[in-house]
Write a protein that binds this DNA or RNA. Sequence first.
DNA 1: CAAATAAATGCAACAATGTTGTGATTATTG
DNA 2: CAATAATCACAACATTGTTGCATTTATTTG
Lengths: 140, 140
Amino acid sequence: MLNQLHHTAEDMIRHNGGRATAGRIGILAILLAEQQAITHREIEQRLPQEQQLDRVTLYRALEWLAEKNLIHKVTSDDRAWRYHANRDVQSHQHAHFKCTCCAQVICLDKLPVERNWPLPAGYRLQEIELTVKGLCANCC
Amino acid sequence: MLNQLHHTAEDMIRHNGGRATAGRIGILAILLAEQQAITHREIEQRLPQEQQLDRVTLYRALEWLAEKNLIHKVTSDDRAWRYHANRDVQSHQHAHFKCTCCAQVICLDKLPVERNWPLPAGYRLQEIELTVKGLCANCC
DNA sequence: CAAATAAATGCAACAATGTTGTGATTATTG
DNA sequence: CAATAATCACAACATTGTTGCATTTATTTG
């Protein structure tokens, strides 16, 4: 199963004209396997012992994956970015839930975010980031 | 005028049972004078030369002010918190605009945020944080 | 398949933001 | 004015992320 994801990951990377290195494939496979958005640290922990990457390499791989729209970054209030695979390329809406107790972050893809809010005159909207905070089922 | 704000600030602090120290009063007056949400660094810069505070003191004062609901923190994507005075105690809704060019953050208090979005079963909503990103009038 | 090369990696050093512990200082109270 | 509890300043540390550069590696080319 994880093997399957590695295959998928490799395809996604090659389709974007990038080198299919063990690091990138491993990272993307981990993100594909994960329902939640996870941190740099959590990705590191999920990488097999024999394939630990330098912190910088990890950051750069994530940057590259985000650039190619294979994953996206989620801003949080603990100043650690979390990452999540983009399963369906277009419809990512940046709506997330973060548990204030266990810090888990999940994607609320169904959440409709209106794009025509009134801004002050002369302002232009580019992107909406919406985070709902609360308690997850486990922490309730 | 700034004098007036100092007076207001001092009142707000005393009403919450805190010590009215020069630092706290100065910080709160600065935040009251500001339309935007500003960073730790920007607060430091606005403090008069003869009254510079230690970084830690500033952080702790901000923490205290936020605890007492006199100000609020705004999460951003550059992992620096921004602070803004709570003029009217109840109706703060955590809706903000951030310019992707100059990093300015303003409050969009008028923005209505619905509080009854569908969450997964067992999840409880506590707070909604919404940031609209785009270009401000100056940067357009 | 081997060599060439552009891309990716690892290491060291740095930067920014924020936190913790502790002894000194100060606003407030009586 | 003295007592005292709150606040402050300093030092040291933690976390997250970035930059520069020499080394390694995936891919391409002959």
